[in-house]
Write a protein that binds this DNA or RNA. Sequence first.
DNA 1: GATGAATGAGCCTTCATTCAT
DNA 2: CATGAATGAAGGCTCATTCAT
Lengths: 223, 223, 223, 223
Amino acid sequence: MSEAPATMPTMPRRRRRAAGADPDKRRQILDGAHEIFIARGFDAASMSDIAAAANVSKGTLYVYFEDKEHLFVALIEREREAQKRGAFEALDEDPDLAHALTNFGERLIRLLVSEFAMSAHRIVIGVAERMPDLGREFYENGPMQGAQRIAGYLDRKVAAGQLAIDDTALAAMQFLDLCQSGLLRPRLFNAVRKPPSDAEISRVVAAAVEMFLARYAKRPAGR
Amino acid sequence: MSEAPATMPTMPRRRRRAAGADPDKRRQILDGAHEIFIARGFDAASMSDIAAAANVSKGTLYVYFEDKEHLFVALIEREREAQKRGAFEALDEDPDLAHALTNFGERLIRLLVSEFAMSAHRIVIGVAERMPDLGREFYENGPMQGAQRIAGYLDRKVAAGQLAIDDTALAAMQFLDLCQSGLLRPRLFNAVRKPPSDAEISRVVAAAVEMFLARYAKRPAGR
Amino acid sequence: MSEAPATMPTMPRRRRRAAGADPDKRRQILDGAHEIFIARGFDAASMSDIAAAANVSKGTLYVYFEDKEHLFVALIEREREAQKRGAFEALDEDPDLAHALTNFGERLIRLLVSEFAMSAHRIVIGVAERMPDLGREFYENGPMQGAQRIAGYLDRKVAAGQLAIDDTALAAMQFLDLCQSGLLRPRLFNAVRKPPSDAEISRVVAAAVEMFLARYAKRPAGR
Amino acid sequence: MSEAPATMPTMPRRRRRAAGADPDKRRQILDGAHEIFIARGFDAASMSDIAAAANVSKGTLYVYFEDKEHLFVALIEREREAQKRGAFEALDEDPDLAHALTNFGERLIRLLVSEFAMSAHRIVIGVAERMPDLGREFYENGPMQGAQRIAGYLDRKVAAGQLAIDDTALAAMQFLDLCQSGLLRPRLFNAVRKPPSDAEISRVVAAAVEMFLARYAKRPAGR
DNA sequence: GATGAATGAGCCTTCATTCAT
DNA sequence: CATGAATGAAGGCTCATTCAT
């Protein structure tokens, strides 16, 4: 609109805006893709279905995304970013170690077992054989990055003399795995209809923290 | 229409063999299906490929299995049974608790991270959305049953006074999750090219046993 | 049926016959392709149309031919072979040089200006930009080979002292071009509705022979 | 419909400009079309590519040209005119017949075998089945007109007593065909990578002139 | 029962054309 | 008039499934 000031010569600027750059429509398409991919998985989702769900013509899909795979990757990326924002915030605030770990663990697990996160996991894992790059990217920017963040936190606590851990990277992984013990896997296989209740999550995370501290908490010197 | 001609009784007296009941051919088909499904995943595997790999005509596939999905389910079932046989044997032999857990953990993880087991996991998880029954069946007869077996073992050790565990079901899950900490997930996402080495597995399982016992080993009374 | 004699062991021979090897059906498909390609050209011909014209399902097309291009090439090859058979037979029989050249020229041109040959030419030329291999193959096995054959004939006549030609390859080309002068090009551009009449062809070929001999006939010594 | 609103007379008094009448923009579009059509052929050229090559929006294309076909026809017409201007100029200047014919022949063939002329030929021939009008128009305004011009020249030479030709129309065609003997066809089928060298052209044209005169040159009376 | 040629629905993708801005 | 995002029909191709032999 106002991108063509009076002084602009006749030479047409090519593209006022990049093709397929309307962010609203892009979001609209991703929403439709979300709905269909989540409901059906990658292969069983058809571009026609997605176009219909997004209320967009099939052609428009290809204006915004190169092909089905790119659309799917874009969707995964959007959702991952959205999730990451919600997990690692108040990790260091709480001075009480047990409290901090519990808090963080509960938040993380609640995120992970959500209907959507589980679906995304399932799909990415399902296509990981054919699209190893997507799988790796997902792993590295998701679980691995999470573990690294916790490892950093543990490092600080070790330095502060609150924990005694040789291998904080391993310890971080252990903590994550303990927090989801018995919760994530049945969801991954779609063996339970609903996400675990907050109470269940609390119980498992509490047990995780207890075990974690039983192993790594610095015992008072004099014993 | 002509399924019961005059000369042929409803129940043939001497059925040469039930439809699709030649066990050798059935095995042959499953072998071909194994090869192709593992290499390509569920959707990308074509019935033609499977027929070729099994050295069988496409029509024969449909004599032995109702459709692609049933063939896949049958394959998963067969493979799961084969695997289960190899894992839970020497669980109780060893009188030394740490030794027994270590032994079992290492064996189990080696099984799970194998190229084949990972592929099977990926596929089942990938189709779990569309085929929830398969996912549940796989989970219940695989991981869940494994955990139950460990829980039973733990129960016996609790009864024997060697361990102090309230919730052995949870403890069993925790043990399993600790044993694979940092090993299984990257494989699941195909983020690492090769299975972990035996040394890596040993290290992680050792850490798992240590943490497990730090939490649940019965401390000498007077303490 | 009788291909499995009593002594044949259980090991199934893979494929009694190669896939897509029924020659009748192959011919049937090529006939349909002929009709559609000739009527519409390469790009405007759709595989659906061809399938319909051949009275075959779309899938069957792909059992017999790898893709649209291969189908087209196969068609061109079939037609070229059919044509070649009809052209170069009685080239050397006639002892009278002018008679032989006239005979051959008329036969060849009649073949070339036929509705079908023209269509094939147009299509191959039309796709030559994108499919240079096809164009080259067509040229080398068609016009070029024809010219070579004539060149060989001329060589023999030169050796026999009937003609005086330095460059028989060029002379052969000249003869061919003279024979079709004003006949082929308008057909190629579809600028005339119907093939030239036999009378027209005779007239042009006669003029071609006359000019050809005016240039290359050995004049009696003493002249 | 609303093409003549009340306030607007049928013939607008001061039409700013007729629809699609900016000759610069028209030229700009044709230049883009030239580039793309020549590089890809008619069907494989997309209107998007043309719009991009012309630095014009796709919509503008349709302001200046009714549809893809009309655009293509307009392009062909423009190019033909450009070419014609370069060929038939110095046909009558040279008093020496052989020299004049050679000169003209070489110029014409050099024009015809150029990369661009060949592409145009291929495309027009390729679509001639679907667009017979275009093919005819191209033929009549190109080769046919060229032949007519030569025929006129020959007529004059016959009148001048330099040549003895019954059918100058046929003779003109013969001359043209001889000039390109072995040069044009392989190019048309894209069977040779590059245009023939000037030396090759000279050789063929020289042979053409020689043969032409051997047939039609008036022999000195007394002979 | 075994075969594999045939089917045809359906998939992803392209592109000429339109139309709101 | 210019723009280019949007459309949707159509294209080439695949593959689970059927059925005559």
